[in-house]
Design a binder for these strands. Structure first.
Lengths: 171, 171
DNA sequence: CTTGGAATGTCAACAACACTGACATAAAAT
DNA sequence: ATTTTATGTCAGTGTTGTTGACATTCCAAG
């Protein structure tokens, strides 16, 4: 499995984890191929209804945040407002998303899924979760914990904070 | 459609891993945020020289396969030949990739990085590996093993085969 | 009350990267 | 000799991202 260090020099504080270029390369490729699998199932559904991943992401985070403003969503998605706006406009037009003017600050728009939006969200997450559930079951809980630990450590700090906020509540 | 144990019934062979929708959602979001981090560092380098992720992926796999044909690369990347060709043309034009007519089958073009191509590859992989190395060190070897196990289980089967082929050699 | 700034929306142009379809060429396979 | 395979290329399209410019709405500070 983990090949020994190509150099015969023993490394001092790190000899539990031989991080050769080869191992890092394998990690890189694992991320690449796995991400393809990760998006494949929802992509098939989205394709049928002429939506893309951007729509999926918007729908996902509108669902979990329930009432986030456009700016909130922009921070999460890390795209420009123009990009998001194009996607949101279509989702609102199609009746999947509702945009509600803020009660306290009336400049803000709070975003919610309609019943129809929740239907699509359920379809997409069900498809995506199926593969992940299979994978998680197959490898066992310790592996899953490791998976999550590595992913969290690989995030930018801002995203790690966001990720952990979304972990508990949907503010 | 196996819904999580909202019922108090203990499940027999599966009670080590309660795969609630909430946990699967967190896995989903971890993948999303982590993939952003994963690509962020090379993206910065690519941006400066007006290349995109497609160029990075081509360079990466040309490097590890050393002499793969265009068709080989298409299988790995999962894109159309037109998409790949656009990228390859530029890389060859720019002197990063060399295309060598096959010795046995002269229809085939075998792809190699030039010295200049290897330079860029090194830059990109170094940047990407830095983050991954930090993450791997931080979480420890068992977590890394779990990470890789989950990712491999999440791949489509074809990709899993490819991934394991690339694991050992570069044929 | 006026002005400044924040939040949002919209328009236009552009680029990267994927797609399809059609067609050309060369060479291997039958 | 014909078909199939491997590759390349041209043209068109769509999604998703980008900048830049500008309008609107409205809170808040002077």
């Amino acid at each position: 499995m983990s090949s020994p260090p190509s150099s015969p020099l023993a490394r001092p504080a790190d000899n539990l984890l031989y991080l050769t270029d080869e191992q890092l390369r394998q990690g890189t490729e694992a991320m690449f191929f796995a991400y393809r699998g990760f998006t494949a199932d929802p992509d098939r559904i989205l394709n049928k209804i002429s939506y893309g991943r951007a729509h999926h992401r918007a729908i996902h985070f509108i669902n979990v945040t329930r009432g986030a403003t456009v700016n909130n969503l922009l921070s999460i998605l890390g795209i420009t407002k123009q990009s998001l706006n194009r996607v949101l406009r279509k989702l609102i037009e199609d009746g999947l998303v509702e945009s509600v003017v803020g009660k306290e600050d009336r400049r803000e728009r709070h975003l919610f899924l309609t019943d129809q939006g929740r239907d699509l969200e359920k379809q997409l997450s069900t498809a995506q979760h199926e593969r992940m559930r299979k994978a998680f079951r197959q490898v066992g809980p310790e592996a899953v914990a490791g998976f999550r630990a590595v992913l969290e450590a690989m995030m930018d700090q801002d995203m790690r904070f966001l990720y952990n906020d979304l972990r508990n509540d949907g503010s």
